[in-house]
Simulated scan of single mutants.
Amino acid sequence: MTLKDLADSLGVSTATISNAFNRPDQLSPKLREHILTEARRLGYAGPDAKARSLRTGRSRIVAVILAESLTFSLNDAVASELLSGIAEVLDAHGHTLLLLSGRQTLAQPPGSASIADGYIVYGLMPRLQLLADLPTERPLVPVDFDIENHASVHVDNEPAAYAIARHALARQPKRPAVINLRLIEQPCNGRITSQHALLPAHQTITRARLAGFQRAFANAGIDASQVPMWNIEENTYEVCAPVIEEVLDLPPGERPDLLLCMSDRIALTALTLAEQRGLRIPEDLRLTGFDGIAEGQYRAPRLTTVRQDSVEKGRVAARMVLGLEPAEPRRLTTELLIGETCP
């Protein structure tokens, strides 16, 4: 059974059959379902992908290159929501999603990446040379960091961080502190000192979030250089916990009474460890996060945080890489969520 055989059998054009498999938006749902049902009944599995790729020069595959490992990305609430938004758009337009990790052991991208029609790159890559090796003639959309000559997708990190810090500082904490996420050029899971060099702003969203915090400090009359900062290397409980324990185990007169955390995972780790130590939230310690993941809104006390729409961020990136939206820089708005951890 060939594509032409099926078209003749159903009395439609070969283009209609092709659209049913590859461009579902071109057909009514009823007609497409009829074609797919008959194709299954007659034993037609669909257009040959290799032949189509050779004929058209397009694979209908979009590669998403993740800064972290695939295991981490699929388990991380923010990354998985982004992937859900990407997949939603690709599914609707007959494309396949190819997941790759930027933490490949080889200097070159995996051979499978070369067949993709376009690329979405999420997060700070451990080796930016990997991106330079991708085909330059195909669309590439960075998300949460910038690549020269490519339109990127961000949320309003600096204004959002300023808004949540301004809210938290209204109660005039005595000992505010900042827990950063991958802000340092060299690996550092601990206290940030003057010896540490920060990553450039175009490579990490945390620089924009820190700038928002520091603007709020200045407006509150606080010398930002005197606010202690710690750095977290990976947004997981296992990596966060040793740093947060170091902070919470400081003597009472040195222990922060406000933690501005650059992710909900960091804030939730701090919340759990603080409760284990008998600290009262928010009386002894006030906490803020950033992301708006469901876990922080379902547990008690509810986390004060910034909610970003990661699903929509994925949709926008996918539409841009498919040419459904102009390749222009996009900055999505966020929402401040006031919970019990920092009322």
Rank of each mutant, 00 (worst) to 15 (best):
S310T: 00
T37A: 15
A39S: 13
A7Q: 10
I205Y: 11
R255Q: 03
D223C: 04
R255E: 02
A165F: 04
E245L: 09
L271M: 15
P251N: 09
N219F: 09
W230A: 04
T204A: 12
D133R: 15
N219W: 06
G289A: 08
A165C: 08
A300K: 14
E137T: 15
R207T: 05
L250K: 13
P200G: 07
G221C: 04
I293E: 05
Q203P: 00
A51H: 07
V247I: 14
N189G: 09
A87L: 08
E88W: 06
G278T: 09
A45V: 13
L287R: 06
V153I: 11
L100D: 04
R23P: 07
N219R: 15
S9A: 13
E245S: 13
K313H: 02
T204K: 04
D291I: 06
A107F: 03
R166W: 02
L279D: 11
S101W: 04
L82C: 01
L259T: 01
A267K: 11
G323K: 03
E233L: 12
R166S: 14
Q104E: 15
D223M: 01
G11L: 07
A317D: 12
D249C: 10
I205W: 03
A177V: 02
T305E: 06
G253C: 01
H93W: 11
P282W: 09
F290C: 02
R175P: 01
A300N: 13
E238T: 09
P29R: 08
A160C: 05
I35T: 01
P142C: 03
F290L: 00
F145Y: 14
R182I: 03
A294F: 03
A300L: 15
S9D: 10
M125C: 03
H150V: 00
I35D: 05
S225H: 11
R307V: 00
A224D: 10
A208V: 00
E88D: 14
D146R: 12
G43F: 10
E158N: 00
D91L: 13
L259N: 02
T56L: 11
